[in-house]
Design a protein around this nucleic acid. Structure first.
Length: 218
DNA sequence: CGTTTTTGACCGGCGC
DNA sequence: GCGCCGGTCAAAAACG
C-alpha cells in the first residue's frame, strides 16, 4: 500500500482473532490476579497465544474502492468500530471495524482515498461465517453481493468455505510457496456526478464498473 | 439498559 | 539499538 509490506504484521493478529476468538482468551489477564492497572495489556496472555506454527498463510483480503459514502457501503453486516488511526500518506484517518456477529473474525478497514476524498477504500479481511443478520439490521440489501462477488473471483486456491467450515483453517505448514494472501481489489468507478449508489444494487459487480485485481502478496 | 462510538495508550514489527 | 508506524485493545461517554 502506501507503506511497507505490513502483511505479516496483520497476518499474525488475524490468526489470533480466529483462534482465540478474542474475548475468551483475553480474559486470561483477569485470571492471573488482581490487576490494579487494567490499562496495561498482557501481550503474553493475549496475542502471543496466536498460532505458534502457522504464520505463513493468510485469509484472502478484499479491497473495495468505492465512491459512495462510508455509511452507504455497508455490506449488510453489523460493524463495530474498534479504532481509528491516521496513517501516513493519507491526510484522512483510517477507521477499523469489526463484525459484531458472534464468532465472526471478519475485519474491515475503511479509509478515504488520499487521491479522491469522495472515494473510500475498504479492506475486508476474512470471511463471514454467518448469514446476514437480517431482521432489524437493515431494510435495504446494500452491497452484499458485491463482497461476495469479490470473494468469488479470488484467485486464492484455498479459500475456506465459510458456510461449510466455519472454524476451518487452511494451514499450509509445509507449503512455503502457498499464496500467503490473495488480495482482490474491487474498484468501483461510478460517476459521482450521478450521485447514485447503484453499484450496490448491481448483481454483476465485476464487470465494467468494478474491476477485480488479484494481487498476490508481493 | 444495551450497544456503539470515541480517544489514548501499548504492542509488535520493520527500517535505519 | 533506537525510532517510527500501523494496528488493536481498553475504558468511558454518548446515543437509541
Amino acid at each position: 500500500m502506501e507503506h511497507k509490506s505490513g502483511n505479516e504484521t496483520t497476518e499474525q493478529q488475524l490468526f489470533c482473532s480466529s483462534d482465540c476468538e478474542g474475548d475468551a482468551a483475553i480474559k486470561t489477564e483477569e485470571d492471573l490476579g488482581d490487576e490494579p492497572d487494567p490499562k496495561r495489556r498482557l501481550s503474553e496472555s493475549t496475542m502471543q497465544y496466536s498460532s505458534p506454527v502457522i504464520k505463513t498463510f493468510r485469509e484472502p483480503r478484499v479491497v473495495v474502492q468505492s465512491a459512495s459514502d462510508i455509511g452507504r457501503v455497508s455490506d449488510g453486516y453489523r460493524w463495530r468500530k474498534y479504532g481509528q488511526k491516521t496513517v501516513k500518506g493519507n491526510p484522512n484517518p483510517r477507521s477499523y471495524y469489526r463484525c459484531t456477529y458472534n464468532g465472526c473474525p471478519v475485519r474491515k478497514h475503511v479509509e478515504r482515498a488520499s487521491d479522491d476524498e469522495k472515494s473510500i477504500l475498504i479492506s475486508y479481511e476474512g470471511k463471514h461465517n454467518h448469514d446476514l443478520p437480517g431482521p432489524k439490521n437493515n431494510s435495504d440489501p446494500p452491497a452484499s453481493p458485491l463482497i461476495s462477488s469479490a470473494m468469488a473471483v479470488t484467485p486464492g486456491e484455498q479459500i475456506p468455505s465459510s458456510q461449510s467450515l466455519p472454524e476451518q483453517k487452511p494451514l499450509e505448514l509445509g507449503g512455503e510457496k502457498a499464496p500467503e494472501s490473495a488480495l482482490v481489489v474491487v474498484s468501483i468507478g461510478h460517476n459521482s456526478s450521478t450521485g447514485e449508489d447503484r453499484e450496490c444494487l448491481n448483481p454483476p459487480l465485476l464487470n465494467e464498473n468494478s474491476a477485480a485485481v488479484p494481487v498476490e502478496n508481493a
